[in-house]
Design a binder for these strands. Structure first.
Lengths: 240, 240
DNA sequence: TCGCGCATTTGATACAAGTCAATGATTACA
DNA sequence: TGTAATCATTGACTTGTATCAAATGCGCGA
């Protein structure tokens, strides 16, 4: 144990599934060692809250899906962001998190303490730059979703979401190349979560899914496992 | 003319209305001179497109309101962002603008050429940091708006928008301190724009405004000029 | 001052999605 | 192996907002 330093590192970057795709890709070997020193792996079960209010967590998502939610005082809820590996999680430079972060599935994180991480941001401009580019992309996605929430029909919303998940979720042994326009994936969300993300009720989501199934746009292996025989058709249904 | 260098500067920062509040606040005197050298003031009339697709503009907004819009192929439109002075305008680090930027009112910009500005970003990390913080705030607002678009009623949406404009729009000689909860402002948008921002039709917006008027939550001086006798009440109506 | 064009309001009706309620399917656990 | 718990589907009905269609108000230029 004492002889093998690697085992004592809290997270082993060289074997990390996400090493080059996450924000860590912005760092040199030595800088990475620095970051590694303050990193700690955490496992979060489905449904558990990861960050709320002043309890902010910074982390890379190694596995699973995290939903960011906002809620009105009477309980109406909206998912305002979905994060997959290798996304970075956490609202930096803020005292309070403007949303709740909750595990939509079992989640594995590579987490960093707030102070240490913000110190590193100041120290390594490349790291901050990387995070900045991430944030710009997130803003683009949020605005894309505003178009969906403001203007798309229930049918188009459901199709758009399936499309988004087909593109972003880790592939479940699917063929999904530019030519063969076929996709198979498993939904990381319940119908209620889908509804909260789409600004609909769970019944409407269910009805739209059965409609798409009847029309052959999608096939259901089971409630969570979905096959898209022709992604082009799904794209048509999604609108844009 | 030749003797007075100040007149030859394209934008005169020392007299700039926005000098300390805009991203320029992140720069020292000398750095500011650098930025000033590439800046050019531009006046844009209502309705004109400022940025679309690969034609990206970077600028500080000095006066007026800019709307960022996205449109579906069949013409359905959604405003995905509203920008007031001293906001920074432009999607940096991208080849294509993911939305249209259009002047909602007559607009005055302090514009920077793309290449020169991105060079300065790399040169002055403080400038990039400032822009990063802006972007994080914009992301928070976008997500706030997702909650509105996904879950609020027409009535709540209209109230929320009035509230937002009361807070952000440059005050039109209004009392608006924490104690005296009274506000007067002029809407920088047509009913159609309001509708596009709220994910509603212009008729619905109009009806909701007349309802709020009948109930005394707001008063209309004319179609564009609005008085809020008690902001607390408007906040109640807005939901949250 | 007239009349044109545009923005806004108002009304009647249609429809998409919400609500309420029951049933079915799947998993988990005792 | 049954039984509860969770998740999803389906149905009947309601409702908020959209749609379609006038009507009104208002600014602006001739």
């Amino acid at each position: 144990m004492a002889g093998d330093m690697a085992f004592e590192l809290p997270a082993k970057c060289d074997r990390c599934v996400v090493r080059h795709k996450a924000i860590c890709g912005a760092l040199s070997e030595n800088e990475l060692k620095d970051l590694n020193r303050i990193a700690r792996q955490r496992r979060i079960p489905t449904g558990q809250v990861i960050a709320a209010d002043s309890d902010i967590v910074f982390a890379n998502i190694l596995d699973g899906v995290v939903k960011l939610t906002k809620t009105l005082s009477d309980g109406r809820q909206q998912i305002v962001g979905l994060q997959f590996p290798p996304d970075f999680l956490g609202r930096i430079y803020a005292k309070e998190s403007p949303y709740f972060a909750e595990a939509a599935t079992d989640v594995e994180l590579c987490a960093f303490p707030k102070d240490g991480f913000e110190r590193m941001l100041r120290q390594y401009p490349d790291l901050e730059h990387r995070l900045f580019e991430n944030t710009l992309d997130e803003l683009d996605s949020a605005r894309e979703w505003m178009l969906l929430l403001g203007r798309k029909t229930a049918r188009e919303r459901v199709a758009s979401l399936l499309l988004m998940i087909a593109r972003r979720a880790p592939d479940v042994g699917c063929t999904h190349t530019p030519e063969i326009r076929f996709s198979r994936f498993s939904l990381p969300l319940t119908r209620a979560d889908l509804a909260d993300y789409l600004g609909l009720t769970l019944e409407t989501v269910s009805r739209q899914i059965t409609n798409l199934k009847k029309e052959g746009v999608i096939e259901l292996v089971d409630n969570r496992e979905i096959i898209v025989p022709d992604v082009d058709i799904l794209e048509d249904v999604a609108g844009n």
